[in-house]
Nucleic acid binder design. Structure first.
Lengths: 240, 240
DNA sequence: CGGCGGCTTGAAAGGCATCAACATAAGTGG
DNA sequence: CCACTTATGTTGATGCCTTTCAAGCCGCCG
């Protein structure tokens, strides 16, 4: 059996906050936020982040075609963005982990092209886009940084189409651990998303995801027990 | 037999220009350039675009790991960006058509993560990034616009992993025609990339690409003769 | 005109999806 | 807190789609 020490993703909301009060605990999670460079400079009680939403599992943050107003930063928990294809099947575009931003997809068209729902109980910070721009424009060094940050998230996604099921899942697991742990030290975490979500995300059937997990478990590449997972042979996963 | 009227992609470089002189002919192709909103405002002989490179087919514009200096706009022709995977196989990330920009992938890391080569004889405009920022920051409305432009190109790529070969190729063809013809009127064009490139891009074997083209031809969804292609039943292609 | 790279077509093998049944976990109400 | 219900995950058998290997064709360029 494996023992999982950190459950960073599975952030349970213990209290719902409607205004920003940066407690010591917040400080930790805020450190990894991609907007921290602005947010931490903004004076306390500043209107940069207007509130912190608490979302229950499966609760929706915004829907496809909603008018674009805000960027959201994941404070704790995890979300997914998706749209429904012509046959009504969910197509997952991205998962969002603590510290990551969602909503930039809507900047160009001025409406959210995708829907966003919480995969576990989640807390997000809402940053009205106009206000964000206002802040960004107020400091020259931030100009460059925001462009850089947005450029970071370019189209590196479609290459998975040429990978086998095992390669896709290995890449997915490595990617998850990389995004969860900045230091890259720990390799034990909680899969917040269902097998089906992973399948939709990687273009695989749910059963295939399950089977590959079992195969990886048998070859001792990973240890897995339902949602708890530990990457044991990271090298071998990357070497697929 | 089909007759192809427009060969916008297959821009043959008749003259190599080393400084910017916006002839009437340039004006046409520049109109569709995503940086035209800045470039057209910059006074003639301004240092915004420093020169126009002529690249022969298969010639390289920059290589993976090169230091990042400039964004490039395709003036005529077409390019592809790719990297080599561990087994030395080419993985194509994106194709770039006239008016489109490449190089933004390098902003974050400050080096080009991918290599770029011309698929046909191609002419590009080089825009040094520092100079671009200088211009962009000089006008607030441009700043907003560049952020919007970059945000436009978000991760909508990986969904192809869940499509069949026919769906991927149909989507690819529709996408190409959309990017080539702003009005969406014409459906006849020249495929500048090889079957192999298309395969690498879509995660399919070259033979599969070929087979699907033949199948589409037999069902009269398209007319195709080597590189010349006409989308006859656009609706049916989209409906796959 | 000959050679070569790109393209097409065929046959066989393999990987993944699908369908189906079951197991386990999570959620709900008494 | 337990019993029930529902959602989620696992495992097996079968079939199909795509890859792979192989051979031949076509178009392009020297």
């Amino acid at each position: 059996m494996i023992r999982v020490h950190k459950f960073i993703v599975q952030g349970v909301i213990t209290k719902k906050m409607n205004k920003v009060s940066r407690s010591t605990q917040d400080q930790q999670t805020c450190d990894r936020c991609k907007l921290n460079f602005i947010c931490s400079e903004a004076s306390r009680g500043s209107p940069f982040v207007i509130r912190q939403h608490g979302l229950k599992r499966k609760e929706r943050l915004f829907s496809s075609n909603d008018a674009f107003t805000s960027i959201y930063a994941i404070h704790s928990g995890a979300m997914k963005t998706f749209h429904l294809d012509f046959s009504g099947q969910e197509r997952i575009h991205q998962f969002y982990l603590p510290g990551e931003l969602l909503g930039f997809e809507a900047v160009y068209s001025n409406y959210y092209p995708l829907s966003a729902v919480a995969m576990v109980n989640t807390s997000v910070c809402q940053v009205p886009y106009e206000r964000l721009l206002q802040f960004v424009f107020s400091r020259p060094e931030w100009h460059r940084r925001i462009i850089s940050m947005i450029s970071q998230r370019f189209n590196f996604g479609q290459y998975i189409a040429s990978l086998t099921a095992e390669q896709r899942i290995a890449a997915f697991l490595v990617e998850m651990s990389r995004r969860l742990f900045v230091d890259g030290e720990s390799v034990e975490f909680e899969l917040v998303m269902s097998r089906q979500d992973i399948g939709y995300y990687l273009g695989l059937a749910t059963e295939t995801v399950s089977r590959v997990f079992t195969r990886f478990k048998q070859t001792n590449f990973i240890a897995i027990n339902n949602k708890k997972i530990a990457l044991i042979e990271m090298d071998k996963l990357q070497g697929l």
